[in-house]
Each structure stands twice: as structure tokens, then as C-alpha cells.
């Protein structure tokens, strides 16, 4: 039984780490600030969620699990609030979201024309 719980929590931790790294890659790769927020969102929701779920299984039925759960709930309330504050601040200072149309490299032009 302990073995099984260890395996489950290991899988959850690995999946959480994967999504956290994907979010960080998105943070580096995506073209502008508004797009990067989606990358940070992957880290904040599924990445942190799976990671903390993995730790909660290790914690068992103790106060540690309760505290981890509180951290998770707080993430889910705070992350959209700070995202909105960030986006709104950037928007009010005149940042323009990047789009395919505003980009003038060649391979992207054919992509956007095929979509419309």
C-alpha cells in the first residue's frame, strides 16, 4: 500500500514538474508579454496543482496536507488576480498585444492568409 502511494505521488510530482517546465519554456519562447502570461498560467494552475497533489499524498492525513491544500487554494485565487493586475497595468501604459498581422516575417504571412 505504501509502495502504491509512493508510485502515485511520484507520477503526480513528475507530471507537475513537466507542466512547470513547460510553463517556464513558454515564458521564454512566446513572443510578447500578453502571450507569456498564458505560459505562466500553465505553471500556476496545472503545474502547481499536480505538484502539490503529489506532496499531499506524501503528507498523509496530517496538518501538513491541510497547509499544502491552503497553499493550492491560495494559488487558485491569487494567480488570476495578479495576472489581471499585470495585464491591465501593461494595457494602461500603452503596451500593444502582439498578433500575426503585426509581425512582418514571411513564413507567418502565408500562415495568416491561409486561415482567413
Amino acid at each position: 500500500m505504501d509502495m502504491l502511494l509512493d508510485i502515485i505521488s511520484g507520477v503526480l510530482l513528475a507530471a507537475g514538474s513537466f507542466f512547470i517546465i513547460v510553463g517556464a519554456i513558454g515564458l521564454v519562447r512566446l513572443p510578447d508579454m500578453f502571450a507569456r502570461m498564458h505560459g505562466a498560467g500553465v505553471t500556476d494552475t496545472l503545474g502547481a496543482g499536480l505538484f502539490i497533489a503529489g506532496l499531499m499524498i506524501q503528507g498523509g492525513f496530517t496538518l501538513i496536507t491541510v497547509k499544502l491544500f491552503m497553499i493550492l487554494v491560495f494559488f487558485f485565487f491569487a494567480s488570476p488576480t495578479s495576472s489581471y493586475a499585470l495585464a491591465n497595468a501593461a494595457l494602461s501604459q500603452g503596451e500593444k498585444p502582439w498578433t500575426r498581422e503585426s509581425d512582418n516575417t514571411n513564413d507567418n504571412k502565408e500562415d495568416s492568409s491561409s486561415k482567413t
Binding site: G23, A24, I25, V28, R36, T43, A90, E95
Partner: peptide
């Protein structure tokens, strides 16, 4: 640690101040 290094890269590169704030916020989550 790998993810934190990537966030740090964005915080150092990030053209606008908002990119840096976003990277630091993400760094804090990690």
C-alpha cells in the same frame, strides 16, 4: 531549479518592465 533558471532568463532579457514582473511572479510561485 531548471524552471527557475528559465524564469530568470526571461527576467533578465524581458524587454519591458512587465515581462520582468511576470517572470519574478512566476519565479515566486516556483
Amino acid at each position: 531549479v531548471v524552471a527557475m533558471l528559465l524564469a530568470l532568463v526571461r527576467a533578465l532579457l524581458g524587454p519591458t518592465v512587465y515581462d520582468r514582473v511576470l517572470a519574478v511572479n512566476s519565479f515566486g510561485t516556483k
